[in-house]
Design a protein around this nucleic acid. Structure first.
Lengths: 198, 198
DNA sequence: GTTTACACGTGAGAC
DNA sequence: TGTCTCACGTGTAAA
């Protein structure tokens, strides 16, 4: 904003040609038009604007910008906090269904303690020569490669795999078959994969 | 903003008392002062403001508000994606594989039934508009059709699916998205799917 | 000299 | 009724 102190000296009015004066009027008109247009555009961006006069538009625009900047600031702080503690926000609640499909909470019974589990979430099952590996991990392509490489390294032969993007994560399911080289316990497979992801 | 169409009729200038005219001038002066002050306040909130004229202040204020609103929107979407709900369905007579790949029952009621009647095993997670459904069930094609049909019936739109044959079972993973029709809790989804498989 | 931007006083509509 | 707000034309000053 250019704040000028006005001169009140009108002793000698400036001589101006007709065309010049008209140009001046026109230019000023154009300027006002632009300003008014922007006032309208600005007011359109402010939610819950009641009074539409210029002063109110400016005032509420100021309030709204302050509010938005505050919001962004909060979000950024939250983001910083989150990256510090990885993905603790994953909230799980486990329910158990009995044969009549009645729901009952089993958090105290504790088949699995899910509340404390972090990513990667992992599950390995074995049925005969088949091995089923399920992993929920952060959405990074390097993770997928690491996992596959590790599985093959352990003496398993991948026969089928599925990678589904799910929110900020990959839901990975892999079917593998034991080769003659493979001689591990399930928990060691979990351990190895968990290690190579961290 | 009150946009008025100006009247150019100056045939009869309104008679005004001296004090009235002076009041008018003063009031208008005050109004302009307020506007100018708010322009200054507004310009102070805009980072990287180069040109300080009123039009630029308004224009950049508009841009900045749009930018901030976009930022807030993104943050809120990220936040939605992060809040993840999860529900695990495990029947009371759960089978567990020990290290020697021997089947043993973990049921507290001493259920030693080692058949696959404990299926289906089910897990439903929600992340924003995404829904992840994982089911381990008997290897019957009818099961797959039942599940898919039920999911669509509930108001979910399947975007990706994976069916992996695993021993005597199917390991099914499905990613779906909520449609406008969908309004269910995770546990109800588990319940519905569990019902339609039994 | 031209362009651009500002504050001013003023008449008039809106509430 | 006054009070508020607006657009207008104008003079002026800096770029």
């Amino acid at each position: 904003m250019i704040l000028r102190i006005p001169m009140l000296n009108r002793a000698q009015p400036l001589a101006r040609s007709h065309s010049n004066a008209q140009d001046h009027i026109l230019a000023e008109r154009k300027r006002r038009e632009k300003l008014t247009q922007r006032f309208v555009a600005l007011s359109a961006l402010i939610p819950g604007l009641k009074k539409m006069d210029k002063a109110s538009v400016l005032g509420d625009a100021i309030k709204h910008i302050k509010y938005l900047q505050e919001s962004v600031k909060e979000y950024e702080e939250q983001k910083k906090e989150r990256t510090m503690e990885s993905m603790v926000l994953v909230k799980k609640s486990q329910l158990v269904l009995d044969e009549n499909h009645q729901l009952s909470s089993s958090s105290s019974e504790g088949n699995r303690d899910c509340s404390s589990s972090n990513l990667p979430e992992m599950e390995v099952k074995v049925s005969g020569k088949d091995v089923l590996i399920k992993i929920l991990c952060e959405k990074q392509k390097s993770n997928l490669i690491k996992i596959m490489a590790e599985i093959e390294r352990l003496g398993l032969s991948i026969t089928n795999s599925s990678v589904l993007p799910f929110g900020p994560t990959f839901d990975i399911s892999i079917i593998a078959q034991k080769t003659s080289d493979f001689d591990m316990k399930v928990e060691d497979v979990v351990k190895s994969l968990s290690c190579c992801l961290s």
